[in-house]
């Protein structure tokens, strides 16, 4: 699993990259009450605004961490945004990307470096 400075995580699963937000991000945001996800089939470039999440306090953008095509979004977090707070690294995933260039993942931090960033 890799981590971005924007507090997102990326995980490779069957040639796809699954994207979500970190535990740290979900704690900082507080109770999430609304999620807007990209359309399936939409093409994204790295650093595009791909999704929006809103906590009780404020709205935040979720950036696409990698170039590619959105092939699946997590309907479960749209129906129940609190799932992101409950399990941000598991059932609270956001979307799956079919990556154009998997080597873009190399730019991101491993768990140890990320933990250092947030400590």
């Amino acid at each position: 699993m890799k981590f971005t400075e924007e507090h997102e995580w990326l995980r490779i699963e069957d040639d796809l990259v699954v994207v979500g937000i970190t535990e740290h991000a979900s704690t900082q945001l507080g109770d999430i009450v609304f999620v807007e996800l990209p359309d399936e089939g939409q093409t994204v470039s790295k650093d595009d605004e791909a999704a929006v999440i809103e906590s009780v306090k404020a709205a935040s953008d979720i950036l696409a961490p990698i170039d590619g095509e959105i092939v699946e979004v997590n309907q479960a977090i749209i129906d129940e945004p609190s799932k992101i707070n409950e399990d941000p690294l598991g059932v609270g995933w956001f979307f799956k990307v079919k990556p154009d260039d998997l080597s873009q993942m190399d730019d991101y931090m491993d768990e140890r470096s990320y933990n250092k960033l947030i400590s």
């Binding site: 507080g30 109770d31 906590s55 009780v56 306090k57």
Partner: peptide, 12 residues
Amino acid sequence: PVQYPLGVMKEH
């Protein structure tokens, strides 16, 4: 203090 560990929702 903007919030405590309970969080805005539960505090409310």
